[in-house]
Amino acid sequence: MKDKQLDTENEELLVLKDVKTSFFTKKGVVRAVDGVNFTISKGEVVGLVGESGCGKSITSLSIMRLVPQPAGKIVSGEILFKNEDLLKKSEDEMRRIRGDRISMILQDPMVSMNQLLKVGYQLGEPYRYHHKVSGSLREMCIGLLKKVKVPAPESRVNDYPFQFSGGMCQRALIAMGIANGPDLLIADEPTTALDVTIQAQILKLMKDIQRESRSSIILITHDLATVAQICSRLLVMYGGRIIEKAPVKTFYKKPAHPYSVGLIKSVPVLGRPSGRLYSIDGQPPSLLDPPSGCRFAPRCTQAKKPCFEIYPPETILEEGHKVSCWLY
């Protein structure tokens, strides 16, 4: 239920209600997003973690209404952005929201840039298509590159993407993402494709930008260490569903879902002699015609009979900490 006493800081910006996105393929229906619920408040930085293939990217593309065509389709649910259902918007209304109020950074910076168009041109696009523009956007683009700390922005603005390193591409993409000061920025694994040293720099940049702009951010990652650094809250996704939601501190102290417990154990801890890195046994689940019970059951050491039959409902453990597991 909606809490009437929320102050403005905690105002809901984005609410997903039972969103389902499927791919209708020759082999069958891939339920990539299978009933996802969560809320993002204004100015909040939320981490979305989970194994490869669990549906993180498709969840974010669903929010953008850019699910890969023609196989993909948002089947049902509501995506309320500032209390308006994005799924009811026309294509043109969506276009006006994209890149302006909601923006996103894709997983792989090198292929997210059009290799045949100048970086400056691509940087200017978000502004150009949401404002009346007369004349050159060069100055603005240089400003954007400065903001994301690309060296020598005056000359770099005329470069082509292949003249940029991976880290610089990612900076440029972040610049495009924040060009219009969006309410929501979705960053899909912004550091995964980069070198470790560059990862830290990009993460710092994201932190700085968030502090300045007060945009809400959904940060998608595999990496719990990243989450700990900049997120206040965490959503754990498994097999197309959110299985646990918790403030970051709570999550680290007492993860509830057996999958989350495994995740925490698999994080290498500084100072602890890491003999064998813990990893969760078994295969990630297939999203092709998934079973009705808990998706984690085949890998769960604590699974009981109902686990295989009925999907566990969401249980509230304490304020802000929710889990979907029959143990609770």
Partner: peptide, 13 residues
Amino acid sequence: DYVVMARIKGVPE
């Protein structure tokens, strides 16, 4: 991806 990115930026179809 660069086409998805262009759409993300709100470039007209």
